[in-house]
Every structure is written in C-alpha cells, then in structure tokens.
Nucleic acid binder design. Structure first.
Lengths: 323, 323
DNA sequence: TTGAAAGCGGTACCAT
DNA sequence: ATGGTACCGCTTTCAA
C-alpha cells in the first residue's frame, strides 16, 4: 500500500507537506506542489479513507436510506439514487446504501460508528419512527418526504399537491366537468406516506374550485383491483370524462381495459398519467403526463446536506418543494 | 463520542479486553464478558469504522457498481440491489454505491483508498474496460454478467441462454411453427452486454432444434420502433404465431398494438414476456412470463464475495448461472 | 485469563 | 514556506 510517507520520501518533503498539498489548507510553493503532485501520480497514491476519517472526523460518505418495497415507484427511486450519486461525487462524497427495513437502528449504527457524515432518508412517513432517532443523531439530515413533525429537520419533497392540482386543472381546461382519480395502493395511504394524500388534496381542491364533479379511489396493484376501481368510478351515475392515474403499475392494464370497455382515449376519456415521460411514450394512446422529477430532488437533497456539512448550522427552516 | 477506552474504563478492564470481547478472538471469562457487554450497551458504544479499518485493514464494506441507464431493466437492477443489500447486512457488511459511468477509475479509487474490501460489478460487457482494472486490483470481485475474458474473475449471471431456450421450447410445445423474438434495444447489442446475445442464441438454437421458423429483431424503446419491429416481423411471408418479448419497456405498447392490428392474445398469437411476474399481472391478456430472478443473483454474488473474503483464495473457476 | 503498548495512515498544531 | 510530531480509536503482538 502506498502511504503518505512513501510520497513524502519520494518527493523529499515532510508528510505534512504532502497532506497540505492535497488539502490545500496552507500555502505551498509552486515548486514543492509540482514535485509532490508528480510523485502522487507516479506512485498512484490514494489517501487511506479510514485513516483520514480517524484523523479528521470526516468520512466523505453520505448514507442514503432507500425503500425497497416493490409497491413503490421503482423508477422514481432509481432516478433519485442515480442523481444523488452523481451529485454526491461532484462534491467528492460517496454513497452508503441502507435499506429502509433496517429501521431506525441502522441510522444509529451508521452515525455512531462514523460510517457516514450525514444522512439522506427517502420515503418518509407521516409518523415516521426514524424522525426522533434522526433528531437525536446530531448529524446533518435531509428527509425526502415530509413527516407530521419535522421538528427542524430539513426536508425536500416533490410538490405532490401541485401535481394533483395541475392534473385537475389540465382536465378542467380541456372542458371536462366530471373527473376521477385512480390513486396509489391503499397500503400507501395506510402507511401515511405523505405524498398520496397531498396529491389527493391538491387534486380535489382544484377540481372543486373549477366546479368539477370528482370521484377518487385508491387502487391496489393487480388487474382485478384496477377493474374493480374502474367499475366503481364509472359504475353509478354519469361517467367521468377525465381520468387521472396516480399509479404507475396499473397504467398499462388500465389503458387496455378502457379500450376493452369501448372507451377511446382521448376521444371518450382523457387520461392524465402521473409517471415519467418515458413511460408514456410506450403507450399507443395520447396521454398527458405529469412527471415526477425525482432527479432534481436527488440533486437538491445532496446539495442541501453538503451545505449543512459545510458549516451551515441553521437548518433550512420548513420544507421546500421544487418542481 | 464513546470510545473503546470509555467502555474499558467503565468496566474496569483494559481496552484490549473490550476489543477481544467484541471480536471473540480470544477466550474471555464469562464474568468479564458480561461486564463488558453491559457497559457497551449502557454507553451505546459502536466501534469507529475508520479506526477499525485502519487497524485491521478491513472495512466491512462492499462496493457495488450499478448501471443507471434507463434503457436497462430498472426493476431488475433494483431487485439486485435490494437482495445484495440484505445479504450483505446478514454478513455484517455495508454497501457502497458506485455508478457505472464513473468508469474504471472509480474502482481504482475505491480499492486504493480502502473504502471497500471487495467489489460487485453489475452489467458487465463483453469487452468491459473494467475487467483489466479489476484484475489489477487484487481484491475479491464478483462480476454480474460474463465478459469475453473473465481471466479467473468470479462471475454470476442469469442463465439467459436457458431463458431464451425455455421461451422457444414453450412456444414449440404449444404447437407453434413460426415464432419471433422482439429483442432488447440495438444499443444493448452494440454495447456487447452479453445477456442479449446469449438469450438470442438460446432462443434460436432451441427453435431450430424444434424445426421452427424463426425471425428476430432488436427493438428500441419507443412506440414507433416497436411498430416498425412488428411490421418487419409480421410483414413479409407467413406471420409468426408465437412472439417472445425480451424487452420490458415496449411490452405494454406492443400488446396494445397487437390488439389494434386485430391480433388477439393468445388466440391469434401467443406472447411470452421476459419480465417479472408482477409486471405481467398488470396486463389484460394471458401472457406466459419468463422471469429474471435478480434476487437470488444478488444474494449469491454477495455470498461468493464474502466467501472469497473469508480466505477462500482460489477464485471459483468459470462462471455460474443459477436459475 | 488479562494488560500494556506499538502501530495502522493520516491531520493539524506548534515550531522554525 | 516547510518540518516535526502528538493524536485520532482500534487491533494485535508480546508479556505476565
């Protein structure tokens, strides 16, 4: 293993000088700098992460807690991870991956054993048991999602209320008078993940403001559940002419089923799908999409936590929602 | 921060004794053990990962390199990560996440700076530039996917040849005489990712053995591309009656398009989809699925690399393919 | 069965 | 502008 001493010796300087060349924490003569940098390259020197962490109390690692449930939007999670990873590297951080089902104890473990400098926590629930833990941790944290009591923790979230509102307004502007929402799985609502009700609220309120008739239903992830859901929405009374699908999984089936029932899209019913644009491209019919831009959220979350690590002690008050 | 010295002092023993209680590397009297363990709990002691890594040259971290391209099967990647993360924790390892687009240099960096003890590399290509790098690294490695020249590196992979073969045989046994394959995006083939051609080979060979007429086409991820693909497969000569879709992204659109063309599934054409079972459930028509069980692969990969770390020096020869 | 102490490879303070 | 060195928290060898 190449150590800082090897580099120092080869360059004919003190180890501390090598350290300072790397960190830039004190002035170095151009000559010495060149000499050291040359030897770093030549020897292929990489500082030992553990030694560094021990001496500096900094790991340059961010822990990311991600949900691995499949009833959740897989592509959004991936998009988030991808952008977070990229943003992290841009700030010279690496990502340590934790799964949500390790529970609050994992956060404790990672923080206390100095495996990471800060934590990003996805899929935060209304009364998330991890929130009190995170508050006790005394490390920078960014929550992705908004719990009932953030208590000063920084949150980033997609503005699902706005997305719901946008979906409703779009249909209102197309002239629809009766609209319906196919929501996420009931399990999502029960878990108290805040995004579902927030979307619902935005949707309902805006629809009401436009004087639209609204019906809404959660929908589990099966063809059967989706059919039952459509039965309910189209069953009694005048049928809706606009449909918002906030449930990626059932979208393909739903489109088939609509066709099966003789409902053409968009002639008989307009469909707004809450999903990535790329997904809509794979369908035959014309859909409007309301994208969930997970990518900027991943980037933003990393940037916020890096800012906190940079000594920005006062946590950003409240919770921002880009998008 | 609670250190091993704090625990030692509280328990009235030497720091080394605490260390040995934790590692179990030497005999400890029951009395002392109890005493130490009590104080560890009471003080909430967690060994400092960096210090540990420095002293022992072991990080208890596995680096995982994942592809974040969206033209790749997102759910397979997630499934892999999830199972790898779980398996890793079961062996007391954490996962460091690297993205494929950081290239070979990232592997170098992580290994040389002792950020991880071993590497898991997904989405390995035929002439993968990371392979020579990995060989030079002198750390345990498990490749997910098989390059042209593994040169002794351990590989795990899904048996795509078998999956291709299975797809063809299934259609043969249903009595079909003319079958077709809608393959992954041309980009996948160009990249030389081995799974695509392996599937193709298994498919083609088995079809030939059964005396079936075969046509195959890659298919990019757009509705247009998919239609062009169907045009080609169904255009000239007698139409196939069995269709294998090795391309998750276009599946929903393809099913719509078939219906649009007046082809009923499975009456007019049988469809075998290579995708997770859960995905098939979301469609209206009866599909046969050939699942890609990423989960056992993630687990297996971790287990293999952990075994190597356990001193199993001789790399498992060749490449295993579960499933 | 346990203790003492020498490193592991950096960082950052104190000198010069 | 640079060098010397104590110390970060843990592991492990050597002694007792």
């Amino acid at each position: 293993m190449v150590t800082i001493n090897d580099v120092a010796e080869a360059a004919g300087v003190a180890p501390s000088t090598v350290s300072y060349v790397i960190s830039g924490k004190r002035a170095i003569s151009p000559k010495t700098r060149r000499l050291v940098e040359e030897n770093i390259r030549k020897l292929g020197y990489h500082p030992h992460a553990g030694a560094r962490a021990l001496a500096s109390s900094k790991t340059n690692v961010l822990a990311v807690v991600v949900p691995l449930r499949t009833d959740l939007n897989v592509s959004v999670v991936m998009e988030f991870i991808a952008s977070a990873a990229t943003a992290a590297r841009a700030h010279d951080y690496d990502l340590l991956l934790l799964t949500k089902d390790e529970g609050p104890a994992a956060l404790q473990r990672v923080a206390s054993s100095a495996l990471a400098d800060a934590l990003l926590v996805m899929d935060v629930e209304a009364a998330d048991p991890r929130v009190p833990m995170l508050l006790a941790l005394d490390r920078p944290v960014v929550l992705i999602g908004v719990p009932d009591h953030p208590d000063g923790l920084t949150c980033v979230d997609l503005d699902f209320a706005a997305a719901g509102s946008l979906s409703a307004r779009h249909l209102a502007e197309l002239g629809h008078r009766r609209i319906a929402l196919v929501g996420p799985s009931p399990a999502v609502y029960e878990r108290g993940t805040s995004y579902a009700p927030r979307f619902l609220r935005g949707f309902t309120e805006t629809a009401r403001e436009h004087g639209l008739a609204v019906s809404t239903r959660p929908c589990a992830h099966s063809y059967e559940a989706m059919r039952t859901c459509l039965d309910a929405l189209f069953g009694d009374g005048p049928a809706p002419t606009g449909l918002v699908v906030h449930n990626e999984a059932v979208l393909p089936g739903l489109l088939s089923e609509l066709r099966h029932r003789g409902l053409r899209v968009p002639e008989d019913v307009s469909v707004v799908a809450v999903c990535p644009d790329t997904m809509a491209e794979h369908h035959a019919v014309r859909l409007t999409t309301v994208a969930i831009p997970a990518e900027p959220v991943g980037t933003l979350a990393v940037e916020m936590v890096v800012r906190q690590l940079g000594g920005h002690t006062a946590p950003e008050s409240g919770c921002s929602r880009p998008g």
